[in-house]
């Protein structure tokens, strides 16, 4: 079977599953009585909706090409950075730096993927933005909490732009014998990360007893992490045939994705709590939470990208 047929089959399968998931969510939504079950169902519905969005992204990547994918991910970074900075206390003297972050750094980072300039893509934010953004702030001569402010802006840009951009950057890898199939890597990454998230959640609800991080992320348990992580690794292994990896390589790489996704959820939860919010979307009823859905992708994408690039490209 060709890569195109593979992808269309996978996409149909996923869409079928999502229709079932949406129906279940809808029926459960009609039947819930208590507040506790209502929040569980709302969580399920939010997840399913965000998967629809990811499937739409993948379909766009497949049918409309690389430029559309980059534009879509650019908007995703925009929304994520907007959430991050909204919860971060900044001062009027940070205005120029923030303007540059939103309107110059985001387009540039995705443009660099578009023109296939890997060298600059990989250091543009860690080196150039890191050195230049604080200069724009220092120039205003407001030193109150200077280090905190520039550090927070740099963190936001790293997470929301640099890390997220590594997902569509998979499209620019040249893997011998795997030409024109790179969107399957993007599919593989999102599938393993998202299934790991949801399986950990389900296993945690079913068997969870021992909390891993009661302060930072009360819903994460050892049982949920081990059970969900292993199942997701197994799923990734079973999907080896859509990737350039052999089965045991797919196992190790899936494990890396699962671990990084877990670390991402944990770390961004700590960041969020230190900014005084429980959900990134807390300020925006029903509209927010891009980072709630993307936290594990943020951490998994760069590592998956670099493992694949180093060993296979």
């Amino acid at each position: 079977m060709s890569a195109d047929q593979n992808f269309q089959m996978l996409l149909s399968g996923v869409v079928g599953l999502l229709i079932v998931a949406s129906l279940i969510g809808w029926i459960l939504g009609k039947r819930v009585k208590t507040d506790e079950t209502r929040s569980v169902v709302a969580n399920l519905q939010a997840r399913v909706n965000s998967w629809w969005l990811m499937v739409a992204f993948l379909a766009a990547a497949f049918w409309l090409g690389q430029v559309t994918t980059l534009v879509l991910f650019g908007f995703l970074s925009f929304a994520a950075l907007r959430e991050f900075i909204t919860l971060t206390p900044t001062k009027p003297s940070d205005h120029t730096a923030l303007f540059v972050a939103f309107f110059i750094i985001i387009p540039s980072q995705y443009l660099l993927i578009g023109i296939d300039w890997y060298g600059l893509f990989s250091i543009f934010i860690p080196v150039y933005a890191f050195l230049c953004l604080p200069v724009l702030t220092a120039r205003t001569e407001v030193v109150d909490q200077f280090l905190e402010r520039v550090a927070k802006i740099q963190w936001g840009v790293m997470i929301a732009v640099f890390c997220i951009s590594h997902a569509p950057a998979l499209l620019m890898l040249d893997i011998p014998g795997y030409e024109n199939q790179n969107f399957l890597l993007l599919f593989f990454l999102l599938l393993v990360v998202q299934m790991s998230d949801v399986l950990q959640y389900v296993c945690g609800k079913l068997f969870g007893k021992t909390k891993i991080a009661p302060v930072v992320s009360p819903s994460k348990t050892v049982e949920g992490f081990v059970g969900g992580g292993l199942l997701a690794t197994l799923l990734g292994t079973c999907m080896y045939w859509i990737t350039p990896f052999n089965p045991w390589q797919a196992t190790l790489i899936s494990l890396a994705i699962v671990l990084m996704g877990f670390f991402g959820g944990l770390t961004l939860s700590a960041v969020k709590r230190s900014l005084g919010a429980k959900d990134w979307g807390v300020m925006i009823q029903g509209h927010g939470g891009v980072l709630d859905r993307m936290d594990s992708v943020c951490f998994a994408a760069p590592i998956f990208f670099h493992i694949t690039r180093y060993f296979f490209a």
């Binding site: 900075i85 009027p92 205005h95 300020m283």
Partner: peptide
Amino acid sequence: LNRIMPKGTKFPVPLICT
């Protein structure tokens, strides 16, 4: 809103306003 477009600046920075 005072963070989105402080007095004296020409361009808005996109933050979420409620």
